[in-house]
């Protein structure tokens, strides 16, 4: 995405350099070219087709990974280009991206608890389906 241009803005505060993230920079000068926006849209639409097409095949456990991978690429494009994050100040980048970091904490611990609870049950407690009548565990163990 290095091909972006920013020459078509009639901006009062136009400055020379675009060393992004500088604290005293305006940071909002960047006007992306219409062509780039259109290219990004095209890529997004292609990726939508890809994700639909891929979902017609079953890759087992990888289904979720593939779909989330494509979605993440799409999301990154939207964030970086449409939302101008690529040219935004460092602090704004940190703020927005840290929300994903903290969200991942919620995901990791909650899902890890769920995943390892099963291991727990197999390890050292008696696994007794609740829907069934209570059966004495000693009889369960015989099966």
């Amino acid at each position: 995405m290095s091909a972006h241009t920013h020459n078509d803005h009639g901006h009062a505060h136009a400055d020379a350099g675009h060393d992004h993230g500088g604290g005293l920079q305006m940071g909002h000068h960047h006007v992306s070219s219409a062509a780039m926006f259109f290219n990004v849209l095209a890529i997004l639409l292609v990726l939508t087709i890809v994700t639909v097409a891929v979902s017609r095949f079953d890759f087992g456990g990888a289904n979720m990974l593939i779909a989330m991978g494509i979605a993440s690429v799409k999301a990154s494009l939207v964030i970086a280009i449409f939302m101008h994050m690529k040219w935004d100040t460092a602090i704004n980048k940190i703020v927005f991206l840290s929300s994903f970091l903290f969200l991942s904490l919620l995901f990791i611990f909650t899902l890890a608890d769920q995943a390892t609870r099963r291991v727990d049950h197999e390890m050292h407690t008696t696994r007794t389906p609740v829907d069934k009548q209570w059966v004495h565990p000693s009889t369960l163990e015989k099966h």
């Binding site: 904490l105 611990f109 890890a112 608890d113 390892t116 609870r117 291991v119 727990d120 390890m123």
Partner: peptide, 18 residues
């Protein structure tokens, strides 16, 4: 503080790993 919330749930039936 974001990493420790489970200590409110030590008896709640979360997994040993948690």
């Amino acid at each position: 503080s974001f990493l420790v919330w489970g200590h409110h749930m030590f008896t709640s039936g979360q997994s040993t790993f948690a």
